[in-house]
Design a protein around this nucleic acid. Sequence first.
RNA 1: GCCCGGGUGGCGAAGUUGGUAGACGCGCAAGACUUAAAAUUUUGUGGCCGCAAGGCCGCGCGGGUUCGAAUCCCGCCCCGGGUACCA
Length: 945
Amino acid sequence: MHKRFDHREIEKKWQEKWRTDGLYDIGERDQTKEKEYVLVEWPYPSGNLHIGHWHAFAVPDIYVRYRRMNGVQVLYPMGFDAFGLPAENAAIKHKLNPREWTESNMAYMRKQLDSMGNAFSWDKTTSSTDPEYYKWTQWMFTKFFEHDIAYRGEGVVNWCPGCHTVIANEQVQSDNTCERCDSIIEKKKMPQWMIRITDFANELIDDIEPLNWPDHIKESQKNWIGRSKGAEIDFVLSVGEKVTIFTTRPDTLFGATYLVLAPEHELVQKYKNQILNLTEVGQYIKTSSQKAEADRLDASKEKTGVKLEGITATNPGNNEQIPVYIADYVLAGYGTGAIMAVPAHDERDFAFAKKFSLPVKQVVGKICGRRESIGKHRTGVYGLLQNEKGEYLIQHFKKHNYHWLPGGGLEDGEDHEECLMRELKEETGFSNFTNITKLTEIFLDYTPKAGNESARNHSIIYFAKVDSSNQGDISLTPGETEHGLSTEWVPPDKIDQYLRNTSMEERSEFIKTAIACAEGGNYAGGGILLNSCEFDGINSDEAKVAITRKVGGRLTNTYRLRDWSIGRQRYWGTPIPIVYDPEGRAHPVPLEHLPWRLPEDVDFTPTGEAPLAKSAELKQRTEELFGAGWTPEVETMDTFVDSSWYYLRYIDNHNAAEFSSLEAQKTWLPIDIYFGGAEHNTMHLLYSRFWLKALKRLGLAEHAEPYARRVNRGLILGPDGNKMSKSKGNVVDPDEQVERVGADTVKMYLAFMGPYGEMANYPWDMGGIAGLRRFLERIYGLSDHLKNEMSEGEENLLHKTIKKVTEDIKVFKFNTAISAMMIFVNQVEKTGLTKGSYEILLQLLAPFAPHLTEELWATAGKTTSIHTCAFPTFDPELAKNDTVTIGVQINGKVRGQITVSPSAAENEVLAAVQATEQLQTRLSESTILRVVYVPGKILNIVIKD
RNA sequence: GCCCGGGUGGCGAAGUUGGUAGACGCGCAAGACUUAAAAUUUUGUGGCCGCAAGGCCGCGCGGGUUCGAAUCCCGCCCCGGGUACCA
């Protein structure tokens, strides 16, 4: 019978002791120790800690404690991101002050956070609503304003005509109506405070590469920024004005058969008197302003648009007159808000052209090729095309697990080129390849795993010269195949999909077709132009430059990323520290008047006016400080601004003279690990990365990147497997759980659910948590099993356990670390353990169950905290196994097992297998063709019956 | 729609430089203890066939490569996150 422990008493006792001892306060930087800055996303004080907060804060605490036990000075701060909409909504609903609501929430949540027993560095805390915090948010804004990083610009907002105010996307219902008044929401351009984040777009893309982040997050960030190389080209309209379009495909200029402007494009308003169908156009503009952006871009939805009657444009390539449309698949905020439409080479343009019966003119050829599977060691794709000099471009795309073989298996004495020539002859039936030259190798975007460099994906391009006398049998029309009209280049990884229905028998015919089709162009950036006057026959990459130059265009990058609109017509946020002089010019509020306090005399119920506009005190304050006729800015800042620099305040939270000294930054930055949820992988990470770069540009920061490493956690679901929500009634209250089974159990259960660094979803399971409680109870009773002598295998198991726990904590696989300790306990409960082993187990467990282990440590007679001990180390020799059981396969199927020494040689193992009665019978009547032996893993015997 | 993830027993999962699929925990079943229950404890537990030995099938679905595939390649399906004023 196990002793049960009283978690309520133990946890309370030790939390108080740790607090009075200041055990976790970080204090000054201790230069004798390595530093580590572990950051978790600061919570919004919604009023109640939920189980997701536990998952976010208590599980990384395991790592923090582990590192401290390794002698590292680990900064693990916590604070509150306390401005935001929910406080204002609660205030409106319950007629309270947002500050009171927020502060009482923070006080309550602080108690809840304390109940975790985490090793938080509370001496470094801060909160975004603290005037000493937002003072610096404001100061940085004024610096950005002075350096033109912050500016007054135009932004697109959700405008509710009913409430007469801007509303959040979240407040827009799925039918595009306002959640408060059900009016239809309109997109509206309004003057906005903007941050010039696009100025940093290149740095934000380029600096991300060296970071120790998961590739998928880097990918998300890059995609969000969406850099595309292209060109701006001016088209002259019949009204005499130029319109600048952006295109990523200037090489297709000659295929532009119409022009499309975003409905919001300024020229539409400017020349509305020239538009003959203005009523129809006006109607369309209104309708599209009422559509969500995602709907406008939805490729599956039918394209809409209206022709601007009375206006045409001149294609600067060929001087053709082409019609001008407005269509909402073109966005005002991307590129220049105007495009040249090339239906032959853009899917969206093609769909639009089909609907409006516009001409489609192809100006590059199409992809040709076929998937091959020849012989044992290769599979690949050939693409062939011909340029104007009568040369064939042959592309061979190859993906193989073992190694890359250009063109396939080399025969004796053959080099790569000879090999490819031979195979091309065999495969195509053409015998007239006379010369073949490797042009270039392309490494596809793929990172080889360590030690396996040969396995990367290649594409290799060869030029093959062909005797031109033998081309009579190639005659097909470019652009036409059984696959229909091609409207885009097909990238290498889509070739399989494109060609999958082609059978092996058609091979020779297909490749002939491919060669013929290739008279037009190709894919992968090397296309050849058609129907483009003097550019015919030129490679499309060259044509991009040449055509842009010819028509006076400019090669540019454009970004999907838009400048950051930070103004909010809300009360509960950091006031934008700007005042306007009587002439309406904006001036930053100088440092001596910061913090520019949020006024208290405000009615924040929505009336259509920004809440701060209603403050008499703010008006008066402005006039007093700056003079009569001066007026305050009445907008507050997006809360993403507050959370863009909180990690800088943590490290210097009492500094009254600076937001964060360079000294503190040198000491603590960069953040070594930033734990957080996937929901912040794009916007928050991008904004905060930007913020530091902007500070650095102004000489206010030391580093260019804040987060050296990013780790995502999964999501905790309700017991029913759905996302927790009050309406579903599946919310798990952590306080109840802690009361019932204790903080250590809750923490360990969350750690045990699955690997921490993976973005899976984990349903909460009441039975599962009971299992962890049982485990801790067994630990509590383990001192009954103490004995003086080591049992057989105890030392080996102990060292294996230390090894496993150590290795797993380092990679945040707390689940398997716990499982290793369970295996240890399962064993020693049967055989007993020495006091030494027992104490090491407690130390291993200390980061996971800090209260219980501290209690047992004290019970064992120790007078100092277990959390100040060094983490146990293992001896690799003692952790080794002297035998290993491997699987025996026959023709790839497992037919038995055999226990051998890990270092046994293949012939020894094979002999042992042949001596085994059970396997002998299977082997005796057969011929062994091949034996594959992987030491420590398997022995596979390939036989023929 | 677009971008990024995830999918392995009844459940959470382990196992990924390709090498015995299901460690550990939950649940379930049977036994011990108990007047009984709870708690505790022992044993068993992927599915199908078989008394057993053993066999066949199994990692969302369909193909492929390989002596060998959860793992690599191609094509799909379902679920989750983000989508710029929720934080």
